[in-house]
Design a protein around this nucleic acid. Sequence first.
DNA 1: CTGTTAGCGCATTCAC
DNA 2: GTGAATGCGCTAACAG
Lengths: 338, 338
Amino acid sequence: MTATIKDIARKIGVAPSTVSRVLSNKPGVGPAMTAKIQKVAKELGYQKNRAAVELVKQRSNVIAAVVSSVKTSFAGQIIEGIQTEAEKNGLNLIIVYSHSADPIEQRKALSTVIERPLRGILLLSIALSSDNLVLLQNSQIPFCFLSISLDKKTVPFISSNDWQIGYQSTQFLLKKGHQHIGLAAIDKYPYTGRLRLAGYQQALKEADITPRDSWVQLGDYSYAAGKAAMLHYGADTDLTAVIAGSDAAGVGVLNQARILGLKVPSDLSILSIDGTDICEMVQPQLTSISQDFYSMGIEGVKYLQLLGGQSAKPMIEQKYTATQIVERESICDLGKSR
Amino acid sequence: MTATIKDIARKIGVAPSTVSRVLSNKPGVGPAMTAKIQKVAKELGYQKNRAAVELVKQRSNVIAAVVSSVKTSFAGQIIEGIQTEAEKNGLNLIIVYSHSADPIEQRKALSTVIERPLRGILLLSIALSSDNLVLLQNSQIPFCFLSISLDKKTVPFISSNDWQIGYQSTQFLLKKGHQHIGLAAIDKYPYTGRLRLAGYQQALKEADITPRDSWVQLGDYSYAAGKAAMLHYGADTDLTAVIAGSDAAGVGVLNQARILGLKVPSDLSILSIDGTDICEMVQPQLTSISQDFYSMGIEGVKYLQLLGGQSAKPMIEQKYTATQIVERESICDLGKSR
DNA sequence: CTGTTAGCGCATTCAC
DNA sequence: GTGAATGCGCTAACAG
């Protein structure tokens, strides 16, 4: 093993506590001694043992992000935000993966995280089973969900408003004169897909339009799901526009439409949800309803910091970050609406 | 704080050591007692304190991946591989970011990782400063670089052969009849960009072609770098093909070429390095020299496991994973070569 | 300014 | 099968 505080204390002929003081930047040690200790520490290649420090201090300066998948690039943006704000506050970030929605898998990821004295836990697009949520809550570690909006009043989250995403994007298309609007590659679970669906349905309802069942195609937000959805719609679809659950799905719809001989946007308009870089990388560029993922990350650690301050009130933050439609090239204006 | 082993021991009226035995699955405790202890542990919401365990056992079952925040999505594939193999071996994975090539930043990321009794460290596309490399080596923790091939005989890595990537892709284009071939958006640092450049130059040399300085455009592998490179080449470039340092860069070249009025592949062929999903998402689909990132991840943790076994010989692995040209739609065959 | 003492939570001897 | 004692490496009182 590596050298310990005792080793260097013994070597110099001083007490371990003195060494500890200088190595953890505590005041009250003479400059001569300080220098000497630092020198010997370097010579011996001393490395702090975090396990020991955390054990005695019952706290660390690390926060954890639990993410469900790396594939979608929005996670990268959130993490970027987290990392930036964490650095600013002298916090270290570790990331752990929790693949699936499988409670057992989730549990494993959670365990590796709540069994340590972390400063906070951020959960990205993770829908915890109720057992696991209880586990998390009992851990006493500050936490916050990101990019998912739960319905329980007692759990904090920072997310886009998914209902609004569904509502606004549908309304946008309606204003462009579209009447037959599809919704593709969203999942059927609460908190994201279901909310978007509800918003979509509401906007349609307000416009006195009754969507046909085939208009909404479930999926997992992937490129493949986008393609599959478009394949279901078919070349002779009555749809003039589709809202895709993610950018990747939007590209899937786009490419499959092309294969079917449909021109975008003249034959079919596409609005993709997310607004990541990929929207500008394809042809035509995808018009999107863009989310502010970076801010979610920033706000997430700010909230954690706030909780750490332990202001008696256990305030629960439930906050929506802004979304914004960014017009690019994939939507066709059909003229006046209504 | 959460309940400890002592709490549950006291509650039952038994010794802490007994509780410890059942909670860490050690044999030699009666079934009745075992059941009782487990029950009470659950009641109290007991959570192991990892810090304490790691302190006493001087080891954990976690491995760490250090990644540079490169925007390119290949990191996700490597991590997928790592995670898969780690799970198979009962290891937990934590990921930490090390932004830049700045030694100070690197040092911080390294510290959060070597100050713990990890089972291994995997470094993804990270070029450590020599100071930091020494630090890592002194930590006694098994480690391996991934997706970067160092020139020191003493450091283990698993990577594509970047020289071959440059050589083979150039040769491929040569065989397709291209004589004027650009290299875009690679960096100028050792170990990746410089190796690819050398391979590219060698292939050109063997074909008696002298590249003009303007043919190689440095960059950071990003979409923007690809666009910038193409902008430098200009609409009236003498190039008939360009090799892009990454898929994102390839798309950048593609889109900028389109803006300049060049048709791909008839006016300009593009070969992108990496072969991630994005190649199939753009129009035309990008022909690529694809890397086996997933395998790098798998092999990386296998190697770590091997080292953990402490077979007296401190064998150093330096291994190249396969690369393969995947033909899609962005390369035009100019006819017989030479 | 520096040394002594105690203990964080747990695993692991060694007794019984 | 179970209990008592010891120590992992470090920080935090408390003395001096």
